[in-house]
């Protein structure tokens, strides 16, 4: 049992999604991909906990729990 949060936890979820799309607006696909990669690393650093990060990688891979 990890501490990875998989229940809704984003404050003002529509504002977040709009901001995410706005960050990508006008970028070439390669630049967009790079932005996403950097964002993953920034967020991973914020999370820090290696068990949580491992679980997050598994969750994103849509592997069965």
């Amino acid at each position: 049992m990890s501490d990875l949060i998989l229940s809704p936890n984003i404050d003002k979820v529509d504002d977040f999604y709009a901001e995410l799309l706005a960050a990508h607006e006008g970028l070439e696909k390669a630049d967009s991909d790079a932005l996403n990669a950097r964002l993953v690393l920034v967020l991973a650093n914020h999370v820090g906990d290696s068990v949580v990060l491992s679980d997050a990688i598994r969750a994103a891979a849509l592997a069965d729990n």
Binding site: I5, L6, P8, N9, I10, V13, Y17, A59, L62, N65
Partner: peptide, 8 residues
């Protein structure tokens, strides 16, 4: 699979 994504 995950409830957290549904509000999005």
């Amino acid at each position: 699979q995950y409830e957290f994504a549904r509000p999005l």
